[in-house]
Every structure is written in C-alpha cells, then in structure tokens.
Amino acid sequence: MAKPLPLNSEQPNLAELQRLIANSVMRPLASGDRSHRANAEVAAQLIKPNDRLDSFERLQLYNQQYWWRILGSFREDFRGLRAVLGERKFERLAVAYLEACGSSSWSLRDLGRGLEGFLREHPELIAPHGALAIDVVRVEWARIIAFDGPEKPPLDATKLTGVAPEHLRLELQPHLTLLEVAHPVDKLLGRLRLAHSEANTASNAVAASQSRRAPRLGAKLSPRPIHLAVHRVDFAVYYKRLDPEAYRLLSALRAGASLADACQTAFADSNAPSETAAATIQQWFATWMRFGWLTN
C-alpha cells in the first residue's frame, strides 16, 4: 500500500487544485491568446505530460469535452432560438451565456433557467431579433417545465359543492405555464418540429441528423398579444392558445385570487352580458378540468 510522501510545497491543496482545473475546463475554447496562456500555465503546473500528449493537450481534452457536452445540451433545449438566430449568432450567444452563468445544477435540464434574464441584460446578443428571441426562450423554458415539472392530484369537483365562489381558491398545476407573447411562437415551434421530423424521415443516420444545421425560421409580430398555456397531457407537452379573458382568469387564480375575484378580473374590461360570460367560463372550466389543470 502507498506510503504517505512529503507534500510538494509547490502543489496546491485539493480545493485550490479543483478550482484551477475547473476554471480551465470551463474557459471558452476560442477565447484568445491570454486564455490559452492561462490554461497552458495551469496545465504545466498541475498535469503530467506523457509520451504522446503534453500537459496542455491533456487539459484541453477536458476543456473540449466540457464545451461539446454543455453546448450540445443547450442546443437541444433551445432549438427554436437557434432557428431564429441562425447557427453563428446562436453559438456566440450560447458561449457568452454559458461562460457567464454556467451550470449551477447537477442536471443539464436546468441549464436554461437564467437565459431570459441574461438576454434581457444583453440585448446585443439577439439583435435584431430581440423581442422574438425572448418570446421563444420563454416558451422553450416553459416546455422544459411542462415536460417533467411536478403534478398535483387534479381537482375533485365533488368537493366544491356548497363552497361559495368568494371563498373558493383553486390552484393550477405546477407544470402549467401561462405566457403572453407578441409572436406566434407556438406556430414557429410547430414548423420547426415538422422540419426536424421531415429531416429525420429523409435519413436514418442519427449522427447525421443531429449535426444537421438548424433551419432558419422567423415570425412576424402579432397584431394582438397571444396568450399561451404550455402544459402536459398524458406525458406529452402542448401549447394551447387562450382567450385574453381566460388568460386573466387563470393568472388571477395562480396569484391566489378567489374564484369570484378571478372571474371579475377576467371580464373587467368586457362588455359581454353576464349570462354570456358565465356560459363561457363554464365551458373553459370544463376544458381545464379535462386537461387536469386545476388542483386544490
């Protein structure tokens, strides 16, 4: 068994070594001479060369794998954004975001959690597609939540009997996200899915289809805001358009309003007769119950 040897005083302790290596591994690949020198210095200080690779080359293997892995995951999660921006702009944005924010979760699923906020702080990265890009990112992040977000037991309507609407508070499924967007992102993502499925049908080569360049897609500003529910039914993710009043009602419920207050908020700006509004609400609730959106 190995005997303890005197510690080499030039070698950092475990925490320092890990910090130096992690910084080098996560340094962008094409970030110029200064970064290259920094990695070369760390490699020379910490990593043994062998007869085939020098210290720097051995460190670079990890540096490359980090970026291939993390960029691959990011590309998969934000295919729509990639289609809107194009390959080169998307790649620049991805490296900038991942260098600034990195991954703060054991799961790559959470990689895009801070993307919307980052893009709002760095509009130059998405110009001239700024508003569309932000809309797409919001919907794509909502899709991730809808895919594997928590699900509560659906509302048992029989337990509502006799509860006055003023006192009735309903919750929405945590995997359901309500969004107001200015572009038809749902249609754009549908076109993208079609483009991918056609590309995959044309070739059985998995590797080839994965590396294929993303199609470029755009969307015009909608004349009116679009209200979307991004949700899950039978383990599949869907985008459902909502009437503005339905969106306001659901948003009010999510904010904790009673059913009576939520209905009032929904139709505050409407001229619809109260009977019509009541019938509409009844239809909405039937649909939402079918989707299992409501919970208490």
């Binding site: 190995a2 303890p4 510690l7 302790n13 475990l14 070594l17 890990q18 910090r19 290596i21 992690a22 591994v25 996560m26 990890y62 794998q65 980090y66 892995r69 993390i70 990195g102 991954s103 703060s104 979760s105 054991w106 790559l108």
Partner: peptide, 25 residues
C-alpha cells in the same frame, strides 16, 4: 471523481489527484 466547484458544475467525471488529502475528503 470530482466535478463541481463553488456550485458550478462541469458535468464531467474529472480525475482525482491521488493524494492523502483527497483520500480523506
């Protein structure tokens, strides 16, 4: 192996330095 520092994850299985300090940790 190790793979994260100060809450930043590399999502890789990084090799250990084979030291007594690392054994303890």
């Amino acid at each position: 192996c190790w793979g994260s520092v100060d809450g930043r994850f590399t999502h890789d299985l990084l090799p250990m330095p084979y030291t007594w300090e690392a054994v303890e940790w």
